[in-house]
Design a protein around this nucleic acid. Sequence first.
DNA 1: TCCCCCACGGTTTTT
DNA 2: CCGTGGGGGA
Length: 992
Amino acid sequence: MSDIETRPRTREETILEGLNEAQRGAVLHGDGPLLIVAGAGTGKTTVLTRRIAHLITTKRARPEEILALTFTEKAAREMSERVDQLVPYGYTESFIATFHAFGDRMLRENCFAAGLSADFRVLSRADEIVFLRERLFSLPLARFRPLGDPGRHLPTLVEFASRAKDEDVPPDAIRAFAKEQLRRFSGVEGDEALSLREQALDLIEAAEFFKAQQDALAASALVDFGDQIHLFLKLLRQRPDVAIALRKRFRYILVDEFQDTNHAQLELVRLIAGEGRPNITVVGDDDQAIYRWRGAAPANLIHFLSLYPEAARVVLRQNYRSTQEILDTAYRLITYNNPHRLEAMTGLDKRLVAERGKGRDVAHWRFPSASAEADAVAKAIEEFHQRDSVPLDEIAILVRNNADADPFLRALNMRGLPHRFSGGAGLFERPEVRSLIAFLRLVASPDDSVSAWALAFSEIYAFDPVDLSRMSRYASKKTRPLLDVFRELEGNEDLASVKGPSREAAKRFVADLERGVSSMAHKRTGEALYEFLKESGYLARLASVSSAKDERKVANIARFFEIVRGFSMVAEHDHIPSFVARFDLLRDAGEDPSAIEIQEGDAVNIMTVHKAKGLEFRVVFVASCIDQKFPLRRRSDPLPLPAPLLKSDLSPGDAHLMEERRLFYVSMTRAKDDLILTSADDYGAGATRKVSRFVVEALDLPSPRARVARSSPLETIAASAPVPDGLSPAPAGASAEPESLAAAMAPPLRLSFRQVDDYLTCPLKYRFVHRNRIPLLTHHRVVYGSAIHQAVQDMFKARQAAVAFGVEDLVAAFRRAWVSEGFLSREHEELRLREGERTLTRFFAWEKAHPLRPTGVEEDFSFPILRTRVMGRYDLVVAGDDGVTILDFKTGDVNTQARAQQRAEESLQLAIYALAHLRTTGALPSRVELRFLETDLVGGFRPSEALALATEKAIADVADRISRGRFEATPSHAACRPCPFRDVCPATAKDD
DNA sequence: TCCCCCACGGTTTTT
DNA sequence: CCGTGGGGGA
């Protein structure tokens, strides 16, 4: 140690000095297993790094005998660098890497022993999804019946499979458990038994699926990222010789962030380290385990002690980072996780002792609205920066999820404070990348008018909006692809009024597209895309105007090219159509790499708590501290792993809350000097939000309801701040005059149910579909639905005409109406065809048992509401003794009677039918019904006059807003997810 | 105190 | 769309 003391003290030395004699001996000189429990800000990595350096310099360990495993690449890099600095050789050959990198390398070194060919490939997530999808078609999944879109259930299954892997539950165990459940409940009656049986069946299906997928992957020597570890583990279990060789090779094993590793990784360490007294050091803090959803287990530390009971224990309590006030506040919070904490379980004392003294109080600021909260935080940051000279770099706003950052980003922008947001917010959402995607889509399917529209509208071509709208409407009217309209613009008399610049743009557009299509056959995706960028002149334009914005655009485009290149490496056929297919899967799998941020230098940090782990800042704001946000509401697993197979003994709810509390603990302990928790009453949803229970726990407030004293200097600012809730559109009163004038001038409107429905879903969607008339690509669900519909209508028309019509006629009608468009694959189409035939055959038999005698089939109706004419068509009208019933046939998975009834009661369509019948005949129908063809379920009711009048008012309101030109988007999860304009809509896009 | 209904809101990210 | 959990009513 003497060499250390002669140099000036560094932070590392301070940390080492903080250890008592025995601890220092254990950390630096100790042999055998060593568990270091290190709280926040105690220098975990430093101690580990020191130990590595000490092993090499003093204990004469050879660097290559040392294996150090970390959780992130960043941690691995940092550790390597610091070891390099400490070890006089100037370099080290120690294996310092993440678990994944280690598993990958070991598998490659032992591929033959593992039964893999030497050139096995590591799969991307998208590759894995492709595999899963292919398998899914061949499986008779009960609940996951690939009814509409087989890709829809993939996320559930993929997540299930990966969780099972992380929890280290083999498919066989899942299947065995499920079969046992099935046996137990097979004779038992009642709803609960039924649902347990159903769950068991699902589990069996999922386990089969999971197993089949694994076998398929192994057979083709493709391995997904998680499997590298699991395959390697399997190898080690089966081949003790490999494990022994590794044990000889890596005499020292060190693991950082031990609590963030999963069960499989713990076993990996054990298999390599062996029994006895291996030289293994793990460092972790159970209170900072925040990756449970990836299999991380705070109990790993306990588990380690049970594996190596003789392990030396060192607890690092000396905190060099924060003030005592911050530490105490955070500690008060985390003790609410007792008795499930290491301290409570083992009697260790982990209370942190600050080197830096007491410090200022932890504050909680509450505001009336989210924007007031954001404004006040931005203002406070400005003050910290200007008055106290805190560098912006040293200030962080921590959010629970990426979306929460929005108001803060806006507020910082308003004040001109530089900031960087490391939120994932989407590369694929950037306008410049969207344009490229639109180009690729359009090359792959030239009929895709949504993409054509998006690309034409983009800054690459910048069509005149009026002209574009006109051409688009024309395309829709003539049911031609938009691209064809561009192409044949020259001789088109109907579009003679299209202006010169638009004609130019269309010419360029068509030429670029045709070049793309002709390149498609012989060029790889990247090449074709690059050619497009070059030839369209877009790249040159971006490069010549060297603003920061354009630089970022170029950087984002470059990143997109990396993805294209990545695809090229694994794809068998790298051409645009296969890339587009793969891209869609990737996107469906939730993949969206973060866009480039070019903000360098001194800037405020905004990031999620997960990203902040391991970092520190002088001033930390923990934002949106309200119930349901932080802690975030628990979302239950769509397909839960059976409790007996889980390693945890906690209820899922408790485990979730404790994880969120650890997350809050992590965010609090990032602060060095000042910690401010902020919250607001209103986050735009109307209801007043409760303050987070964590704020109450940490600050020891009397009760969650008590209002925190607004003692901060920000109180005044908050009070005087305008309270825009972000939701209120343009002030209605101000522009009322011209709008009503516009309404009076507008031509009479014709509205169908579809139009009203689209407008209510999202006015912008209405504009896209019914105003701009962007022609849509056929979706397979539409093909299926309308073919079924057609067949059923044919049957009833025949009945009306007293013509014989058998089940074979029904199926024939179905086949006739079938259009081969929009299907994911040949198998998918076959599957859907068979599904349709089966459905119709069953329906035929069912209907024969209680036949309908329709008085009207596909009858048109139309009636006025003020100046608006409402148009529509009844599927089926049946006049009976007790009045008229109007029916509508539906396809789609409605499985329960309750659901069917609910759908009927909420159906705008049925309400419009009732209203139409009232207005056209003077009487309400006695009943309106939805009939679900797949399940033979019926939902219906007797419509009331009140419903009819309410519907009339709703339609009048929609008509009024349409004629006033109100098309503000109302983005929501429910509306945007199934929307065909999701990829091109500016309302879902993140703009600059 | 318990149960039912209604409104709310849609993760976190490693490789 | 649909689970969840809080709030309100009995």
